[in-house]
Amino acid sequence: MVKINGELLEKDGKTVTEMLADMEISGQRVAVEINEEIVPKAKYDETVLNDGDHVEVVRFVGGG
C-alpha cells in the first residue's frame, strides 16, 4: 500500500505518471514528493511507487 496525501491506496508498482492519470490530474500543475524528496518531472515515467511510500501530490490552482 502507498500513502497518497494521507490516504492508503493500492498503487504499488505504478509509476508517478500512471498514478497521476488514475487521479485525473494534469502533470503540468503538480509537484510530487515521495518520502519528502521531490520527484523530477523528467522522471515521472520511470519512478515507481513502492509499498510503504509516503507520496504528496501538490495540485496548484490559479489565482494570486
Binding site: 503540468q28 500543475r29 514528493e33 521531490i38 518531472k41 501538490v58 490552482v61 490559479g62
Partner: peptide, 21 residues
Amino acid sequence: EAFDKADQKAMLVNCVLESMP
C-alpha cells in the same frame, strides 16, 4: 512563489525543489 497561473506556480516550485534544495 506568488504567481497567479497554476502551471507557473508548479514550474517554479518544481524548479526550486529540484535544482535549489
